Computed example of a mutant assay.
Amino acid sequence: MPTIGTFTKAGDIFTGTILTLTLNVTVNIVPADRVSDQSPDYRIHWGCVDCGAAWKRTNDAGQAFLSVKLDDPAFPHPIYASLFADDDENRFNLVWSRPKGR
């Protein structure tokens, strides 16, 4: 699974660049106002454009991460990825994954 982004964290806000063959954008992942248990924990903004959401998760090894969904009308399908902490506490890697069946 390739890394498509690198982020740093300041307080509760993640800032970083997503770089793919079709994207080269700087985004902010900011805490969201949750209205239900299914609501995202974070919203993803590219400038003033809301381009995705993220949910807090924990993997089988007990490692916390964010499950990320990026979407835009120009995309044929949403992009799914996971934001994991790097060895440095303030650095994070956005790792892309393709859902099964696509």
Rank of each mutant, 00 (worst) to 15 (best):
V25M: 06
I44G: 04
R57L: 09
Q63G: 04
I29A: 00
G16F: 00
F92V: 02
N59I: 03
F14R: 02
P2A: 15
S97M: 12
P76M: 13
I18T: 05
F14I: 00
V95R: 08
C48G: 10
V25H: 04
C51I: 14
W46D: 05
W55F: 11
R98G: 15
G11I: 02
N28W: 01
T3V: 14
Q38S: 10
W55E: 07
A85G: 03
I18Q: 01
P2T: 14
L70M: 11
D72G: 13
G62R: 11
Q38V: 07
R43Q: 10
L23I: 12
D41I: 07
S82V: 09
Y80K: 14
F84S: 03
V35H: 12
F14E: 00
P2C: 13
R57K: 10
M1F: 12
V49N: 11
C48F: 09
A54E: 06
P73S: 15
M1D: 12
S67F: 09
V27Q: 02
G62F: 11
A61F: 08
A10K: 03
T58G: 05
T6G: 04
T3W: 12
G62S: 10
T6N: 07
N90D: 02
W55K: 07
N24G: 11
A85H: 00
A54D: 06
W46K: 05
P76G: 13
I29L: 03
F65M: 03
K69Q: 13
H77F: 14
A61K: 11
A10P: 01
A32K: 06
D33M: 12
P31N: 04
L83S: 02
S36N: 09
P76Q: 13
Q63K: 06
F14D: 00
D86E: 07
T22R: 15
V35T: 11
V35Y: 13
L21Y: 14
E89G: 02
R34S: 11
Y42E: 05
L94S: 06
I4R: 07
C51T: 14
L83M: 04
K100R: 15
R43V: 05
N24E: 13
R57A: 08
T58A: 06
F92W: 03
P99A: 13
A10V: 01
M1Y: 15
S36P: 05
D88V: 07
V49S: 10
R91N: 03
G16M: 01
G5P: 01
L83P: 00
K56W: 08
P78S: 14
R43D: 09
T15R: 00
A53V: 12
R102D: 15
D86G: 05
A61V: 09
L21D: 13
W55G: 06
V95L: 13
F14Y: 01
C51K: 08
T22N: 14
T17F: 03
S82G: 09
N24D: 13
S36M: 10
V68I: 10
S82H: 07
T20H: 15
G62T: 08
P40A: 12
